[in-house]
Simulated scan of single mutants.
Amino acid sequence: MELRQLYYFVKVAKKEHVTQAAEELHVAQSAVSRQIHQLEEELGAKLFLQKGRNLQLTPVGQLFMRRAEAILADLERAIMEVHEFLDPEKGEIRLGFPHSLGISLIPNVVSAFRKLHPNVKFRFKQGMYPSLIKDVMRGEVDLAFVSPFPEEHDHITGEKVLTEELFAILPPNHPLAGVDAIDLIQLKDETFVMFSPGYSLRPIVWDACLEAGFTPNIGFEGEETDTIRGLVAAGMGVSLLPEMALYATGPLQPVKVAVRSPRVMRTIGLIHRPNEKLPLVAKVFQKFLLEFFECSGKGNEGKLRGGG
């Protein structure tokens, strides 16, 4: 069995398509198909089933997938450790984060870190809350920012680094656009622009509306803060967003208004796998981040309970 076969197998399993996997691997489709066939012959088991135009893992394939990903992750960490041992200043940090943090927070902290460590590389992975948790557990990222901060979890550990207020965002011509602050109940008859199910900001906004005494009428859903902001600015409804998701330029922008009651907050944590030594360069970055938030006055310590 060759490592190349494992790489090809994992890529096909994730893409569920040989052609797409071959394109990402920059090899011929026939080469990928041949390696998968040889792997199945060596294992004596069928790893994929045809489902329409896509491929689907068999139960045996799903079992093998978990082991193959673990093997490749261990190999990648071993290679990184060797590179870091030779020169810790030339390592790579694998960082996960939700889209809303990619507008200002991630560029700011990475820029500040690279001023001190200019040769360190980053590999970023954006995702929703559940996928970021899984990425950390599977070892696909070293560190991840997640929101809300998981107070208890059996398989991850970390620190709460930030608590952030959410603001109401309104169309520029909205009757409440000129006020300093509102009570959320004042928006009970409005159409809401919400994040799609699975995004962590959706239940925060939903629960805040319920606490205010009404169920939000959802007219539109989106998957990125740019989409939510744009739809509100275009007069399609109202919403709530954290302040760091409101840093944008352009002629069409919503109006930000503080919410007096109830106060709507979200927590942000920095998580990693418990009982596992971080790569040296990731450990340096983790220390930098905790000091960054503490020194900026935004830190909000809260050691994660459960999982170490």
Rank of each mutant, 00 (worst) to 15 (best):
P262W: 06
F97Q: 03
G127R: 09
T227D: 11
D226L: 11
P148S: 02
G96E: 00
H153P: 11
V264I: 07
A181M: 05
G269I: 13
A13C: 02
D74E: 09
F220R: 11
I36L: 10
K277Y: 02
Y129P: 09
A282Y: 01
P242Q: 14
Y247I: 07
S33G: 01
F149K: 06
F145H: 06
P203K: 13
V232G: 14
N275W: 03
G302S: 03
A28Y: 12
S100W: 12
M265C: 03
F48K: 00
F285H: 09
T227S: 09
D142I: 12
A245L: 12
I106Q: 01
M80Y: 12
Y247W: 09
A144H: 04
L25K: 11
P203D: 14
L43F: 02
F48D: 03
G235P: 06
Q38K: 13
Q35S: 09
T157G: 01
L187Q: 07
P59S: 08
N173K: 15
A282F: 02
E221P: 05
E294S: 07
S111A: 03
N173T: 13
S239R: 05
F214T: 05
P251D: 10
G222Q: 05
R67I: 04
Q126Y: 07
E84N: 08
F195N: 05
L3E: 07
Q29V: 09
V205E: 01
Y8C: 03
D183Q: 13
F145A: 02
L57E: 02
E76K: 05
E152Y: 11
F214A: 10
S239E: 04
N173I: 07
A68L: 02
A45T: 00
M80H: 12
V18Y: 11
R305Y: 04
G139V: 03
A73K: 01
H17W: 14
S147L: 06
G308K: 15
K303N: 03
E190L: 15
I218P: 00
M194Q: 07
G127T: 10
P216Y: 00
G297Y: 01
K121Q: 12
M65K: 09
V255R: 10
A212T: 02
M65R: 11
H117R: 15
F214D: 07
M137D: 01
A245T: 10
L132I: 02
V82D: 15
Q186K: 10
P254F: 07
I36V: 05
L170N: 12
L116W: 05
F167A: 12
R94F: 15
I103Y: 13
L72A: 06
K90I: 15
E159V: 08
L246N: 10
P118M: 02
I228W: 09
I133V: 15
K46N: 00
Q5Y: 06
L3Q: 07
M137R: 13
Q50S: 14
H174G: 04
I71M: 08
D154V: 08
V257E: 08
R53E: 07
T215H: 05
M80S: 14
S261P: 10
K46R: 14
D180K: 11
A248N: 08
E211A: 15
G302T: 01
V161M: 04
V32C: 12
L176I: 11
S196I: 10
G222A: 13
D87V: 14
L176C: 15
E81P: 01
P251A: 11
